[in-house]
Design a protein around this nucleic acid. Structure first.
Lengths: 330, 330
DNA sequence: CTGAAAGCGCTTACAG
DNA sequence: CTGAAAGCGCTTACAG
């Protein structure tokens, strides 16, 4: 029977199963399963070799559905990402993460957090992911879904996206502005809170550092990437502010608004951003900013995520290095 | 045994199955399956009502794994996105898409296309997605995987991301530059081709329109979002070029480089971008650009995707409206 | 050291 | 109009 369609069976078939591999390798499906999953020590080297060969020649990939069904948990890791600017940095991080997780036997997929709680519950309940990796604070509803459905939340991103790391950024901004002699300190967050998942942590770090260095509580500005808006906010507070911005885009916007008002930078308005984005780097005046090494973050993060996934418990917190780039705006 | 932990069993359990629903509703699992999947006309209204109630009260979500196993195909739609700037526009589009697909019974997940062909094959072979939705040209390897694994490719994004739409953008840029009296025409693409999935289509549209309007073949510039780089490229071509840029970021960079060289804009360098990004809008000089209505695109795209998914064949091509915004750079 | 059997949770013919 | 049975492709005790 098989010989009658040699051209077909020689092609990588669309759906080889473990039974196909077993038959061609002359073993049972149980043997195929164990050998391919690295639990095949009991079998002879020759048998293992043969099974691996056949699997490869058939382009066999085990069905995630069948495996999930029997294990009660899939190999999926769902990255939940907030509505934030998705630049080159973050994309590089995801590339590394995808690769490392794949090597560890997991499949990374992305999901924006703004989707409705219902559709999130549907996703979680029906896919039964191995874990969820949040890149920003989860909503109450999202946390509730994960608790109810008993899906573990990976914490390495906490240092990146939730607590320590964000506070460190705010603290760096405060230290820099104060060191440069600025006195009227302010923090500029995005008006659209949805786009601004990290400000709470950064603002906290900013305020604490201000207090520690003997300054009063900073003013909070609400800005959007819009000239009218930013101009109005500047006018409202008057010249002489030194502003730690949510990111470089906000900093650029404030500088543009200041220039429109005829204000001097950094004399009438000082700003420091975050991200050291490529676009901010080409602009003049050059924005002072908090920079970080995204490939370092990517490697650290991937290692920590895989460790927690495999060992079940968080490793030592990630050690991300942030540094201030002194531009012309502070 | 179960009675010993009443508090647990009264909670919405992490894993209600169709058997649970069937038992509590007093029907068979087959009945549950059919009623919940909208094929329950044969059952009395009372029965259907009861089953729906019980399912809801148990927070029952069918196991995607089991369903995939029996159907041979999952409810997953994998959006393959190129390495391009991921701004607010695109995120809004994904929000709408996620919602609409969820309503139609599908689950949208995102995947960056730069991942290795092996991990892509693993994803496709093991997850058996209902379809793949490409937001940029697929690589040979990716197309090969989808063909081999028999996974349909959704085409509504072709007009958005692959052919007509992109050519339309290039053509609009050419028409605008020529209309404004510019003669030495050029197209600026990103040096890093990975970040620049749409330039082939746009350049084609640009060249064709140039030819149609009696102009010679445009010069192609390779730029990155870097001042040194952009300056060198401008010097190489000399003043007097009118450049259609891959996007607003490229246009902003070229303007910054021109300003550094002491060139007048648009006298010594004219540029028109694409996207009408919020950040470009705050800058001076205001960049001329090609704008589009992203929420319109989102709605059109969602409709077309669902239609193709459900009806199996593409609907009339999407009708995206692009318009030129006349700034100060052309 | 190896294979036969049971079972994960669904859906879809099929029999009543 | 309804339910019992088979089967999707795996993995994991268990028996030989």
């Amino acid at each position: 029977v098989e010989a009658s369609e040699p051209q077909l069976s020689s092609l990588p078939t669309a759906r080889a199963t473990s039974a196909d591999v077993a038959r061609l390798a002359g073993v049972s499906r149980a043997a195929v399963s164990q050998i391919l999953n690295g639990r095949g020590q009991r079998f002879s080297a020759a048998t293992r070799e043969r099974v691996n060969q056949v699997a490869k020649s058939l382009a066999y990939e085990p069905s995630a559905a069948a495996r999930t069904l029997v294990r009660g948990r899939s190999d999926l890791v769902v990255a939940v990402i907030p509505h934030t600017t998705f630049g080159t940095n973050l994309q590089d991080i995801f590339d590394v993460l995808t690769r490392e997780l794949s090597a560890a036997g997991f499949t990374l997929v992305l999901r924006f957090s703004a989707s409705s709680p219902e559709s999130f519950d549907k996703l979680i309940a029906s896919m039964r992911p191995a874990a969820v990796l949040p890149f920003g604070p989860l909503s109450e509803a999202e946390s509730g879904v994960l608790t109810t459905r008993r899906v573990p939340v990976l914490t390495p991103t906490e240092s990146l996206g939730r607590r320590d790391g964000q506070q460190a950024i705010g603290a760096l901004q405060a230290g820099h502005l104060i060191e440069r002699g600025h006195r009227r300190l302010s923090y500029a967050r995005l008006k659209d809170a949805r786009q601004d998942p990290y400000s709470p942590g950064r603002l906290r770090g900013f305020s604490e550092r201000c207090r520690d260095l003997g300054h009063s509580e900073p003013v909070v500005m609400q800005v959007s990437i819009d000239l009218e808006d930013a101009t109005a906010e500047l006018v409202r507070h008057g010249p002489g502010m030194a502003v730690a911005c949510y990111n470089d885009d906000v900093a650029v916007t404030l500088v543009a608004a200041a220039s429109r008002l005829g204000w001097q930078v950094p004399g009438d308005l000082a700003v420091i951003g975050v991200d050291n984005t490529p676009l901010a780097r080409v602009l003049s005046p050059r924005i002072s900013t908090v920079a970080y090494d995204s490939s370092g973050i990517a490697a650290d993060l991937a290692g920590a995520v895989v460790a927690q996934l495999v060992e079940g418990e968080p490793r030592r917190p990630m050690n991300v290095r942030y540094s201030v780039f002194q531009g012309e705006t502070t």
